[in-house]
């Protein structure tokens, strides 16, 4: 088992962000994580990769209890992440950005090995010709690709993708979906938060649904879409409902 989350709860002051969340993710699978805005999806990512410590519950990564470990320790154990709000290191070049991922990721490469690895990762996401540019000068779609390249360069076992498709046009989405399938083809397990339903349904092996911090459904994509509880959760969000029902 790649990742086991059991009974995780997280509070911020009076706000209960996550309540007793449990799920398992098998090796080599793509799992989609969906839910209305504010459902706690990004918080769940933050708990899984050690940015936040949960008040209750456990996170087991490849058989090891990593609950409460700082995020850099989790990263070194082979879990990488692409952020929703892209966070490139603006004053470094695109290639240097990716080298950080390679140097400090699972394998902890030396600087020269990291440069080679960075070029591989940049080719994989189609950014190789921009390697020498400052990361701050990229456009949004390119920054999303950069986030993915940074995560890939770490050669992780598990990669967390937080809305890498948001804000992209359909052709850009198709291109990134191909990249995501390619990543799985390398044997990397993927947990992805996504709002673009078509994409989730297309690539995910299984889907998790969060609502107000509670896991309300888990299963195959089609099962989840047919689940009345899920449809109800989305009814509070007309736009999402339309997208969900429009499938």
């Amino acid at each position: 088992m790649m990742l086991q989350v059991t009974g995780v709860s997280k509070r911020f002051g009076g706000l209960q962000a996550l309540t007793d969340v449990s799920f398992e993710l098998a090796e080599g699978k793509i799992m989609g994580l969906i839910g209305p805005n504010g459902a706690g999806k990004t918080t769940l990512f933050n708990v899984v990769n050690g940015v936040f410590e949960p008040e209750e519950g456990k996170v087991i990564f490849r058989g090891e209890d990593i609950t409460g470990l700082p995020s850099y320790e989790v990263a070194r154990r082979g879990m990488a992440r692409a952020h929703q709000v892209v966070r490139p290191l603006h004053e470094l070049t695109v290639r240097e950005n990716v080298m950080v991922g390679a140097c400090y990721g699972r394998e902890g490469l030396s600087l020269s090995a990291a440069a080679v690895r960075a070029d591989e990762a940049l080719s994989q996401v189609g950014l190789i010709e921009r390697g020498h540019m400052l990361a701050g000068s990229l456009n949004v779609a390119q920054k999303k690709r950069l986030e993915m390249a940074r995560a890939l360069a770490a050669r992780p076992y598990l990669i967390l993708l937080d809305e890498v498709l948001a804000g992209l046009n359909p052709s850009e989405i198709d291109a990134i979906l191909d990249t995501i399938r390619g990543i799985r083809g390398q044997g990397i397990t993927i947990l992805m938060i996504e709002h673009v339903m078509q994409a989730v349904m297309n690539v995910s092996d299984r889907v998790l649904v969060l609502d107000y911090g509670v896991l309300i459904a888990e299963g195959l994509p089609q099962e989840v879409v047919d689940n009345p509880q899920v449809i109800e959760a989305y009814l509070g969000d007309p736009e999402m409902t339309a997208r969900l029902l429009g499938e």
Binding site: V51, Y72, A80, H90, L92, A154
Partner: peptide, 17 residues
């Protein structure tokens, strides 16, 4: 390189290891 990652965005740097 790690230091400069911290300079640009410390939280993101930690997530990268």
């Amino acid at each position: 390189l790690g230091l400069m990652a911290i300079r640009e965005d410390e939280d993101a740097a930690m997530v990268m290891g």
